[in-house]
Design a protein around this nucleic acid. Structure first.
Length: 582
RNA sequence: GCGCUCUUAGCUCAGCAGGAUAGAGCAACAGCCUUCUAAGCUGUGGGUCGGGCGUUCGAAUCGCCCAGAGCGCGCCA
């Protein structure tokens, strides 16, 4: 496959560096910080000068002189303390865009050595309502799953349901507390189940005896008590149903619906391995694994609690073993908020001590919590958490107001309008989340999720819809595509922006950072809008120019759609507007 | 008490393997619909990059100190 612009430059640069006897690790360009001076810049001379104690401008001049000879540069200059600025020939950028059009991957490469990666995201719990706090993990995980798949990795998304801890005992004990037994369990719907859970939670917080009782039931459940198992099974399946509905709305998908309970068997194996390796010990009735205590002391892993139940770290360790043994995982990535940092440090260290996942890369991607205006994890005005469904409904209602009523527009009845509403509302919600870098928490502004202007999902969908409309008209007029030529600065800027797509996707992949794609997508849509405003397409001066701009627009549309797809966002064919909308 | 993370424009956030004039969206203000969807475009104003010291030719970016905020610290998950 032909190298795309930026890679082609890097490749050439690398050859030049080697030829000059310079360390080629600095042989790369980045998109210029000074678009007035250049398309790309290389800061390598500055870094090299530092280690070699030489004049950066001299080194830069040497490199620039060689670069001068290559066939793709319009101009090469050394500026400031030693920046190498290069401007590309218009034809080179144009040809690059043409090549992208011919490629079904739009110029995006794949990884050289694909491997098997398990993504652990979502993590909803049985009997707990899904709220806005669950949004991030699911939405980010889904996007990373798509990115990994696209670049060629064999990826499995696992929801890793929270279905096995003390909360299970709590809810069972609460039902028994209220009903006297578990006979009526199978008649309860999800609303009642979550209600039981809430009450169980409150009672266990206040009442020592209730806590103790829940603990006993948990242990019995895990031990295989048939009555408890049956009731639990039902609660689990009802919860999964509700969770699936929520995720379906958001278009968040999983390949596996494993839960903590599935690791039960493997937990016992881990305990055995730990004993054989002599790394476990008894402590106050519990069985533990001690961890590093000198440099950065960590509390030990409590494998088996003094009441006989397995600790939750053990469940995660056992799950790693299963993923390695049964799924041949080579990389496992967890997506949780920052509160679990220590937990995963413990789990990873213990996994290493146990030797159950040699050569497997374990990674914990930490994201900040979704916060309210007070900087604390988001709560609604009445102090509760807002559930996911409410959020989605609010966004949908806002979208509905901006759309025509069913059958106001020909071909758009109830079903079509509903689908449009769904697509736009979900785009607004997901993009609002994905545009933030993973690591930082963000403040949840309810209004932002129903905003469609500026850096939002609908803004990008709108750009796509306009191009679609243009392409439809072009087809009706019998216009055809032609080789891309770049005359106006706006079309040059657009073609140059398009050339970045491969690197953007690769960066999003290595950093596991969908926001890089979100940022780029918005930027590309913006660049297109500027072009669209400045350069008439259908009414361009010559048929050749019409064809060129048409092709450039179509390429933009395809890249935007691909990017949205990698974010897990759909692009509707059209964006309709309500009559009364200004 | 110990540890981790954060503090950039009025608001929400980028930028951080040191580098040229610190960016975007929102909000504010001024323009642009008899030509391809105005959910759009163009322009203006707005910043002691929490504070201080240091390393460096050069610091939002690296180090130390201080202040403020959040989170976590063996039987909850």
């Amino acid at each position: 496959m032909n190298l795309l612009l930026e890679n082609k430059i890097n490749h050439t640069l690398s050859q030049i560096f080697t030829q000059l006897g310079l360390d080629d690790k600095y042989a790369f360009v980045k998109v210029s910080d000074r678009p007035d001076l250049s398309d790309f810049q290389c800061n390598g001379a500055l870094a090299l000068a530092k280690v070699a104690h030489k004049n950066p401008r001299e080194i830069a001049a040497m490199i620039a002189a060689e670069l001068q000879k290559c066939d793709f540069c319009e101009s090469v200059s050394v500026d400031g303390p030693g920046f190498i600025n290069l401007k590309l020939k218009n034809e080179v950028i144009a040809q690059n865009a043409d090549k992208m059009t011919d490629d079904e991957r739009l110029g995006c490469g794949m990884v050289e050595n694909p491997h098997k990666v398990i993504l652990d995201y979502g993590g909803p719990n049985v009997a707990k309502t899904m709220h806005v706090g669950h949004l991030r993990s699911g939405v980010i995980g889904e996007s990373v799953r798509r990115i990994e798949k696209f670049i060629g990795n064999d990826v499995i998304g696992d929801v890793h349901l929270g279905d096995w801890g003390t909360p299970m005992g709590q809810i069972l004990s609460e039902i028994i507390h209220q009903d006297g037994n578990l006979d009526k369990v199978t008649s309860y719907d999800i609303a009642q189940i979550t209600d039981f859970y809430k009450k169980a939670n409150i009672r266990c917080k206040e009442d020592e005896a209730a806590r103790e009782n829940a603990r006993i039931i948990t242990a019995k459940l895990q031990d295989g008590n048939e009555e408890y198992r049956k009731a639990w099974q039902y609660l689990r399946s009802e919860s999964v149903k509700a969770v699936k509905e929520n995720y379906a709305q958001l278009d968040v998908n999983f390949d596996l619906w494993w839960g903590e309970s599935d690791a039960h068997q493997a937990c016992q194996e881990i305990v055995k391995i730990a004993r054989e390796k002599g790394i476990s010990e008894r402590d106050n009735g519990a069985e533990i694994i001690r961890l590093e205590e000198s440099n950065k002391p960590k509390p030990p892993i409590i494998m088996v609690k003094s009441d006989g139940a397995f600790g939750y770290q053990l469940t995660d360790i056992a799950t790693i073993k299963m993923r390695v043994d049964d799924l041949n995982a080579q990389e496992i990535v967890y997506f949780t908020d920052s509160r679990q940092t220590l937990h995963f440090e413990q789990v990873f260290e213990a996994t290493q001590k146990l030797g159950i996942a040699p050569d497997v890369e374990l990674q914990h991607i930490v994201f900040g919590t979704v916060n309210g205006a007070d900087g604390k994890p988001f709560k609604t005005r009445d102090g509760g958490v807002m559930d996911l469904k409410t959020l989605i409904d609010m966004s949908k209602e806002k979208v509905r107001q901006s759309l025509p009523k069913p059958n106001e527009v020909e071909g758009y009845g109830e079903a079509e309008i509903e689908k449009l509403t769904q697509q736009i509302a979900i785009a607004a919600i997901k993009f609002q989340d994905l545009k933030n870098t993973i690591a930082s928490g963000y403040v949840f502004e309810l209004d932002d999720f129903a905003k469609f202007e500026g850096k939002t999902g609908p803004y990008i969908q709108y750009a796509i819809a306009r191009i679609n409309s243009m392409l439809r008209k072009a087809q009706a007029n019998g216009a055809t595509y032609a080789d891309i030529v770049l005359q106006a600065p706006e079309e040059r800027a657009l073609a140059l922006k398009l050339a970045q797509v491969h690197n953007v996707v690769m960066r999003a992949h290595t950093d596991k950072e969908p926001s890089i794609i979100a940022e780029y997508t918005h930027n590309l849509a913006q660049t297109f809008s500027t072009f669209y405003n400045a350069c008439p397409v259908m009414n361009a001066e010559t048929p050749q120019l019409v064809g060129s701009r048409l092709k450039l627009s179509k390429l933009t549309r395809d890249v935007l759609k691909l990017m949205l797809d990698l974010l897990g966002i759909e692009a509707p064919e059209v964006m309709l507007k309500a009559e009364n909308k200004e």
